[in-house]
Design a protein around this nucleic acid. Sequence first.
DNA 1: ATACCACTTACAGCTTTTGTAAGGTAACCA
DNA 2: TGGTTACCTTACAAAAGCTGTAAGTGGTAT
Lengths: 228, 228
Amino acid sequence: MFKIAVVEDDVYLRDELIQTFHKAGYAAFGISEFEHVEEELCGLKPDLAVLDVNLPGKSGYDLCKNLKAKVSFPILILTARDTLSDELTALGLGADDFLTKPCHPDRLLARVERLLKTYDKIKSMLQLGKVFLDTDTYKLVFRDKHVVLAETEGKIMRTLMERHPAIVSKSELFSAVWGTEEFVDENILQVNMSRLRKSLSQINLCDIIQNVRGQGYVLKGQEVEDIV
Amino acid sequence: MFKIAVVEDDVYLRDELIQTFHKAGYAAFGISEFEHVEEELCGLKPDLAVLDVNLPGKSGYDLCKNLKAKVSFPILILTARDTLSDELTALGLGADDFLTKPCHPDRLLARVERLLKTYDKIKSMLQLGKVFLDTDTYKLVFRDKHVVLAETEGKIMRTLMERHPAIVSKSELFSAVWGTEEFVDENILQVNMSRLRKSLSQINLCDIIQNVRGQGYVLKGQEVEDIV
DNA sequence: ATACCACTTACAGCTTTTGTAAGGTAACCA
DNA sequence: TGGTTACCTTACAAAAGCTGTAAGTGGTAT
């Protein structure tokens, strides 16, 4: 069953939307903590988010832009602001669809269903900025190039992408990749880090893995921080 | 540069659309041979198609449905029929977006751009009915399961999918997979066919590769012939 | 200066993939 | 019914790719 997150400050409309989704067979969750929408959404990991852009205190557009750079679920903007310029802004920031209130439930459901169908094909894709990683095959895509990583390299890359923008310590990497922090030889991480960097340079992703002496590794640079 | 196909019988509107796309930096092609739209589109292999559903002689909805089962580029329906029911029909048949005439060029361009961006991630995906094949990694997806094929198996599967619904002769398979028809041992094809069938059964795709005695192999069954 | 951390290359064992060989099963035809 | 042809399957060994170990180099902080 698909999970849908509803970010909307009007409590009546929010419950109405949730009802609509429930009736259609989706698991719908309302989000009301507008201070930490981003964190809540990242924690909930929905298959789709319906977003109002008129949130108290926060700009929905900024939120949309930030989300799109790090999450891989589709975002549907549902708003009372109905000018062409609003629509262009939303789509330009990466929103996947734009509907204006009031919106017929059937239209909303049809649009949601279409987005879910499309994203079904790419839900194994992890995204960070302009870099994509298929977590099934460890195919890494950047611009028009791609490289298929070996399993160990892929696991390291995945961990770095998932924890971004945090610095990932060596022991964290050991548990994520080898399942234990009690590593015999620490060198093996550096060897694989070296291999990964060589693979990355094949698709022009040079120097995006940076070492922080004594602390660990972190992804850095335009390539992973820009929005798409 | 992205290629866009415009399927529209009104010659003035068609040229206007093509102009709009040209100005925005796209390569736009008008399609007027409505008897063979499907073949023309498959030959042109655009990155996106803009489709009017009121074509002379043909139902644009049928066209959309058929196309969606075999091509992997997005389809945007642009039509004068503006009822909710029209939109629901179009989206239900697999259309990726639905806009009504008259449509502001900027809105059309923004929608087109968003679709191109989304499909950029899945353009390496070959689709046949409900089956998807990533041609970079040979990851094969069916419903909620997937399997990563070895290179040889993947090449065979790719050829069968691309030539569907034709029967693919052994010599065709040899040139597609090994690059030569002058094969020494014909058995190697059968061995790999056997391996491929075993891989397919892992994701519940049993019996979709059928042999036609003396002629070759063909994909058959609900799984590859139904629309998505 | 020295200890420590990080990086790189080479190599050998292991796993996966690939083609060969050989034997079996199913369809077609006299 | 028996034989021929086409197709299918399993087992095995060579080749390719992946992974961890070893050993040595280079850089940084105190």
